[in-house]
Amino acid sequence: MSRKITLQHASQSEPVSVSIEKVAEGSPNDFHVVLGDRRIDAEIELFGSGAGWIRLGGKVVRFYGHRQGDDIQVWYGGKVYDFKTVDAEGPKGAVRGAVLLPELTAPMPGTILRILVADGDELSAHQPLIIMESMKMEMTISAPAVGCVKEITCSEGDLVEMGALLIRLEDSGGGAGDE
């Protein structure tokens, strides 16, 4: 029984649909794999948690992988590949380019060192907004595009979690988002 899964690679635009099924109940290592419109046979031997060997086209290679929710990470040949599993129709609302985000969040847990703007400030693209410290590094959060500060939701000295809302932005005077 095979099921179709769509994998979206973190830096590639086109998702790939894959499905995998055992060739026969008696041979646990032999699989039919469908990659997009191609069908290939692979021998897979798992050893331990999320690590194994794949024999493909006569070549045996080692891989490491793990899954957490929708995220799949695979190490192969010295590189790590990150995927999201998505539904068969592919991602909704495709990537829209540099659209002004209404909200900026903390990319890492850390401390707010300085806030360089105030409510209502007009912003130019890439203007520094907030300086944070995380893992002994200072980092600057900048405006993604032209806009205006709607609301600042943190204060200097705050300890914030990853993903915490820091600042709300809005278009300046109803202007366009993508500069």
Binding site: S19, I44, V74
Partner: peptide
């Protein structure tokens, strides 16, 4: 190989 491994994980 990566796609096969990912399919296995998924």
């Amino acid at each position: 190989e990566v796609l096969v491994a990912s399919a296995m994980m998924a």
